[in-house]
């Protein structure tokens, strides 16, 4: 008795699924043209962005050296990473310190300077926009910082400090683990006014002027009240988008460390998860292990994003 009822509901369930599928198929057919428009971008995106995520997850459970077929080794790569790879732990620490400092700082700098120049006349504003944005698009120009922070007396910082008697011998800015991170953070901040900065400038210009007039009538007395009660709430969509870009950039900026501090760096002081990944993937060809590093990095980045999105969303309530 009970078996027949399950059979019937089962059949009913199957029937439902089948009609759902048929409906879906018809809808897909009806929208054929939409899929054709989406196809070129969609296929490339799936092949080179979506599928690789799954391949990386799969490979992270294997031993793979590019010559032999991958062998399944379970969680061993992850266990190795967290329990016996001391350099990885240094890399994680450096990455988090780096991202926690440069991420929020560059995000705030992007907003702060967009906000400051928004008050200026259009001509001066566009000159300053160009000036602040230029380092982020100037390509290899950031290598000039190796000259500025060069470890000999010809380096600009050393030269001036020596001349004025602050130090007696040149500081090895890019070799001394104590100085490496601070110098790199300065350089990353220098080039951090990128896409988010433009997004904020645009967002500020899009705010309805009448909101400010209404605010003045309602008793807003200084620029800080205006900022917190009018400007920031009106810009929430841009602030959310800017946060995504700033976080991704601050993690990716770790790659820029390599030319500055050399690879590998002294005592691994400039080592981040990204450089660790490059080391195992492109130098040692331990693809399974490198994939595990990539998965950890992926989870860290997306986790940081979700956390920040939640924070921003809660901020105004």
């Amino acid at each position: 008795m009970s078996s027949t009822t399950t059979k019937i509901t089962n059949n009913g369930f199957k029937y439902q699924i089948r009609t759902k599928l048929r409906e879906l198929l018809e809808e897909v057919k009806a929208n054929k043209i939409s899929y054709l428009f989406l196809a070129p971008f969609g296929i490339i995106f799936i092949v080179f962005t979506v599928i690789p995520v799954f391949i990386a997850i799969g490979l992270s459970f294997t031993y793979y050296n590019m010559l032999e077929t991958p062998t399944w080794i379970g969680w061993q790569n992850y266990i190795g990473l967290f329990l016996s790879d001391d350099v990885f732990l240094i890399a994680v620490k450096n990455t988090l310190v780096f991202a926690l400092i440069t991420g929020p700082l560059s995000y705030m700098a992007c907003f702060f300077f967009a906000w400051l120049i928004n008050e200026l006349s259009p001509r001066i504003r566009s000159v300053l926009t160009l000036l602040f944005y230029a380092p982020s698009i100037a390509g290899n120009a950031f290598v000039i910082w190796t000259t500025i922070f060069s470890g000999d007396a010809y380096g600009y910082v050393n030269g001036f400090l020596l001349k004025w008697g602050f130090i007696n011998e040149p500081i090895q800015w890019l070799l001394d683990p104590q100085w490496m991170m601070p110098v790199v953070i300065v350089v990353v901040l220098w080039m951090s006014l990128g896409t988010s900065f433009l997004v904020f400038i645009a967002g500020l210009q899009g705010i309805d002027r009448r909101l400010y007039e209404a605010g003045a009538v309602d008793g807003i007395r200084n620029r800080w009240q205006e900022l917190f009660y009018i400007t920031l709430p009106a810009m929430k969509p841009q602030l959310m988008f800017g946060a995504i870009i700033s976080i991704t950039t601050s993690f990716a900026a770790a790659l820029k460390i390599i030319p500055l501090v050399g690879f590998p760096s002294t005592d691994y002081a400039g080592r981040t998860i990204v450089t660790h990944l490059v080391d195992y993937g492109n130098v040692r060809f331990e693809m399974g292990y490198a994939s595990a590093i990539a998965v950890v990095l992926f989870v860290t980045m997306v986790g940081a994003q979700k956390l920040v999105q939640r924070l921003l969303r809660n901020l105004d309530s």
Binding site: F48, P52, I244, F251, L277, A294, M301, Q305
Partner: peptide
Amino acid sequence: VVLSLMFAPEVLSIPNYLI
């Protein structure tokens, strides 16, 4: 697509090379 903005493409360098 929005999710893919949240991570740096370097993460995918190995599978991309294999593909």
